[in-house]
């Protein structure tokens, strides 16, 4: 009985305790870790990944998986640069086009999965390849920046509008001047919105039902296909938001950026399973998962761990989180049967 209680406690709070322990340790061990600037830096480093991760969480909730989010983000990055630099459009048009592109990709993903019955991993893998290729075609594989030579020999005259760059670079004042960057604010807003949608509305409830037993949800009158498509559209739109923020931060359409986005976002989503013993995809867990990775990397960096150990650390965290989720939770349920 005592053991059972302890186990339940470990499953529920183990990961959060680990997080607090980690923060305490780094605060003591690495000077300068504890402080608003450092905290904001961590948030900023995970904001874009976190937004993508919240999107992929929605697809995980309906029992799917979206592998195309990384390439949607980089496509949005390239598209926004192309809109402003080559087509000389305003920031508003660029942002609108990117969001539309994300929604469209999500819709196509959803239709492939729901109507064409392509398994989710394969459909979104195909979409990922397609987008990685597509985003390079208009510029013949080159990055986009003001003054670049276009395929037809002319020079690109457009510039990234200040309003667009504001999205990636502006910092709001909070206690300290110029403290909180726009992407962090957006990350928090998106996190709250996705959480509210998944946890408090009946639509979220039905999406969880689909993820748990699709047939049963359908037989209870849920429009399974519509919710699945919705989940992929949310994922696509949020991925394009991530791409816009990345473009605004970089100020150019960099072809090589965003390589790690997919894996980092998926890792955050999966680490989220372990938070509060949820054992299922959830928005709060995803946000914590993203932060966890950010804190760990920032702490290690400040303690002079070399940059090439980063992926190893992320992988280790993910494996530990998955053990938390699956091994311990199945023990709690008594297992066996």
């Amino acid at each position: 009985m005592q053991n059972q209680k302890l186990l339940n406690f470990a499953i529920r709070y183990g990961f959060l305790i680990l997080l607090v322990g980690l923060v305490t340790y780094f605060s003591v061990a690495a000077s300068g870790f504890a402080g608003p600037r450092s905290a904001v830096f961590i948030f900023q480093s995970v904001a874009i990944t976190g937004i993508l991760a919240l999107g992929v969480t929605c697809t995980l909730v309906v029992g799917g998986f979206d592998l195309s989010i990384g390439s949607v983000a980089t496509s949005a990055l390239m598209l926004s640069a192309y809109m402003m630099v080559v087509l000389e459009q305003s920031a508003l048009v660029a942002v609108g086009a990117c969001l539309l592109m994300g929604a469209l990709v999500g819709l196509i993903n959803g239709l492939l999965i729901v109507r064409m019955k392509v398994p989710d991993l394969l459909a979104t893998l195909g979409m990922m390849f397609l987008l990685i290729g597509l985003q390079r075609i208009p510029t013949e594989g080159r990055s986009i920046s003001t003054g670049m030579t276009l395929p037809d020999g002319s020079t690109a005259e457009g510039v990234f509008s200040p309003a667009f760059l504001w999205l990636g670079r502006h910092r709001f004042d909070l206690v300290l001047e110029n403290l909180i960057p726009v992407p962090v604010v957006l990350f928090l807003i998106v996190g709250v919105l996705v959480w509210v949608f998944l946890e408090l509305t009946r639509h979220g409830r039905l999406m969880y039902a689909i993820g748990s037993n699709e047939r049963a949800a359908g037989l209870a009158g849920t429009n399974v296909n519509r919710y699945k498509i919705l989940a992929y559209m949310i994922s696509g739109v949020l991925a394009s938001v991530g791409g816009i923020l990345l473009a605004a931060r970089l100020g150019r359409g960099d072809i090589a950026s965003g390589n790690n986005l997919l894996l980092d976002a998926v890792a955050a989503g999966l680490i989220g399973f372990a938070v509060l013993g949820a054992a299922k995809p959830n928005a709060f867990g995803t946000a914590i998962g993203a932060l966890f990775v950010g804190i760990l990397l920032q702490g290690l960096t400040m303690m002079n761990a070399p940059y090439y150990t980063q992926d190893f650390v992320k992988g280790a965290v993910l494996v530990v989180a998955l053990v938390f989720t699956f091994a311990l939770s199945s023990k709690r349920r008594g297992g066996g049967h």
Partner: peptide, 17 residues
């Protein structure tokens, strides 16, 4: 296979439709 939502509690299963 056609009815129970295994991840839900009794309430969630009862109110589903």
């Amino acid at each position: 296979s056609n009815g129970v939502i295994p991840d839900f509690d009794i309430t969630g299963n009862l109110t589903l439709p």
